[in-house]
Amino acid sequence: MKVLYFAWLRERLGRDFDEVSPPDGVRSIADLIDWLGAKDEGFALATANRELIRAAIDDELVEHDTPIGSASTVALFPPMTGG
């Protein structure tokens, strides 16, 4: 699975994406964020305030409790504003 990072999250992490293979226990977006944070202190710091992190699975906006299933991409990004 590819995890994409956008806006200030990408800037704080210093990368655009990660290719990961989460273990079976990682079932939701929240689980994925926890798992990535346990592996990478910088990621944990960048995502510490979960209210500021939005997610999409295969280009569909989702909540943190959404199962990731067999997603090919997960995008993480801050709230967006229109204009």
Rank of each mutant, 00 (worst) to 15 (best):
L52N: 15
H64I: 09
A55C: 07
T66R: 04
G69P: 08
D58V: 08
A55P: 04
I53A: 03
I57P: 05
W35M: 09
L45F: 02
I57K: 00
E63H: 05
A38C: 12
N49E: 15
L61N: 07
A56E: 04
W35K: 03
A44Y: 02
D40E: 15
T66D: 01
A48W: 10
T66A: 06
S70E: 06
I57F: 03
S70A: 01
E63K: 05
A56M: 05
D58N: 14
S70Q: 02
I68P: 01
A55S: 11
A38K: 11
A46S: 12
P67A: 10
I57T: 06
T66C: 06
A48R: 13
E41T: 14
L36K: 00
A38E: 13
E41V: 15
E63W: 02
E60H: 09
D40Y: 12
D59L: 12
A44L: 02
L61I: 12
E60I: 11
I53L: 07
A48G: 01
K39D: 14
D58E: 09
E51T: 12
I68V: 09
R54C: 14
D40C: 11
R50G: 08
K39H: 15
G42K: 04
I53C: 06
D58A: 11
I68S: 03
G69S: 01
D65M: 07
T47R: 03
E51L: 13
A56W: 02
G69T: 03
D59K: 10
G42E: 06
L52P: 07
P67T: 07
A55I: 08
P67I: 13
D40R: 10
L45R: 11
S70I: 01
D59F: 13
W35E: 08
D58L: 08
E60Q: 10
L45E: 07
I53K: 06
I53D: 02
T47A: 09
K39F: 14
A48E: 14
T47K: 06
A56V: 09
A44S: 05
D40H: 08
A55D: 10
K39I: 13
L36T: 00
E63F: 05
I68K: 01
R50D: 13
R50Y: 14
